[in-house]
Design a protein around this nucleic acid. Structure first.
Lengths: 164, 164
DNA sequence: CGCAATTAGTTTATACATCAACTATCGGCA
DNA sequence: TGCCGATAGTTGATGTATAAACTAATTGCG
C-alpha cells in the first residue's frame, strides 16, 4: 500500500481523515490544474474563462438571452454577471438589446466577432482537451464522468439550483 | 443510451465534442459545486476557503513557514499571497515574524485563535464530507481518486509546479 | 384603479487570482 | 570594498465571486 499521491503533492504531513475528504480535495485540485490550462488558452484570444462560457451559451442558444438567464446557466452569481457582460460588450463580443414588451429585461446576443472568436478557438481547444485527458482510455473517461455525475447528484439540491 | 446528464444540467443544446471535453467540464462543474458548500461552512467560522487552506498548512507544519513557501503549497500565485496573509493577520488567525538571519524572509505562524478555529471546524467539516460524498461506495471513491490522480499526472509538468 | 409583492438588473463593498513592475535584502565576485 | 544578479516580498491594475442593498418595471389583487 503506497501513500496517496495527493498527500505527497500537497506536502501534507498527516494522512487524509477519510476517503471522502481525499476525493473532495482531489476534485478541487484537479479542477484548479485544468482551469489554469484553459485560462491560458482563452487569454490568447482575449477572453477569460467566464467570458468564454457565456459566449458558448449564447452560441448554443441561437437567440438572445436575458442576462439573468445567462447567470443561471453559469456558476456566476447574479450581481457578478453585470460587470461580466459589461466587459464582454466593451470588448465587442456581445451586444445588449432592450426588450420592448418587458422593459426590465435586457437581452444579450453575440456579435459576429464573438462568434468568429469561438470558431477560431475550436481547434486549439479540442487539441488541449486531448493533451490534458488523452492519456485516459475511453472507458476510464466514461467511468470518471459517471462518478462525477454521481457526486453532483445530491449537490443540485443542496446548492439549490439557481434557475432550472 | 440516455443523453449525458451534464449536457442536460447545463441546458446544452449540442452534444459534447468528445469524451475528453465532457470529462473536463465534469471536473470543473463538480469542483464548483463542492466549493460552494465548503465556502459556506468556512464562512460561518470567519474564514474563506483560501484562508482555511493556509491555516491547515501551517498547522500541519508545526513551525512557522516563509510566505512564499505557503504560496507554493496553494494554488495561490505569489502576489496574491500578501493580501491573504494581511487579512488573516488582521483577523487574528496568524502572525508575521521577521527572520533575523535573512531579513528578506517573513515567517508566518498560526495564533492560538487560528488553531482553535481549525479544531472547531473539524467535526462539521467531516460531516460535510460525508454529506457530499457519503453516497459513493468506498470502492467508487477509491476509483474516483485514482482516475483524478491519473488526470493530474501529466498536468504537473504542463503547469510547471511552483515550488516542489 | 391603485398599491403591495415580484422580478430584472445594477451598484457597492470585500475577497481573491493574475500579471507586471517595484523595493529590499542577500550572495558572489572582481 | 563595491557592484551585479538573484531572491523575498509588496504594490498596483484588471477581472471575477459573493452578499447586501438598491432602482425600475411589472404583476396581482382588493
Amino acid at each position: 500500500m503506497t501513500k496517496p499521491k495527493l498527500q505527497h503533492e500537497l506536502k501534507k504531513k498527516r494522512p487524509f481523515e477519510s476517503a471522502e475528504e481525499e476525493a473532495a480535495l482531489s476534485v478541487l485540485r484537479t479542477s484548479d490544474r485544468l482551469q489554469i490550462c484553459f485560462t491560458r488558452l482563452f487569454r490568447d484570444y482575449g477572453l477569460t474563462s467566464s467570458q468564454y462560457n457565456i459566449l458558448r451559451i449564447l452560441r448554443g442558444e441561437q437567440k438572445p438571452l436575458p442576462i439573468l438567464e445567462i447567470a443561471n446557466r453559469t456558476i456566476t452569481v447574479v450581481p457578478g454577471i453585470t460587470g461580466l457582460i459589461d466587459r464582454l460588450e466593451q470588448a465587442g463580443f456581445v451586444t445588449r438589446i432592450r426588450c420592448d414588451k418587458d422593459r426590465r429585461v435586457i437581452y444579450v446576443a453575440p456579435t459576429e466577432r464573438g462568434l468568429e472568436t469561438l470558431t477560431a478557438l475550436e481547434p486549439p481547444l479540442a487539441e488541449l482537451h486531448g493533451t490534458l485527458l488523452g492519456h485516459l482510455s475511453h472507458a476510464e473517461l466514461r467511468e470518471l464522468i459517471r462518478l462525477l455525475e454521481k457526486v453532483r447528484e445530491p449537490l443540485n439540491d443542496v446548492v439549490s439550483e439557481r434557475g432550472a
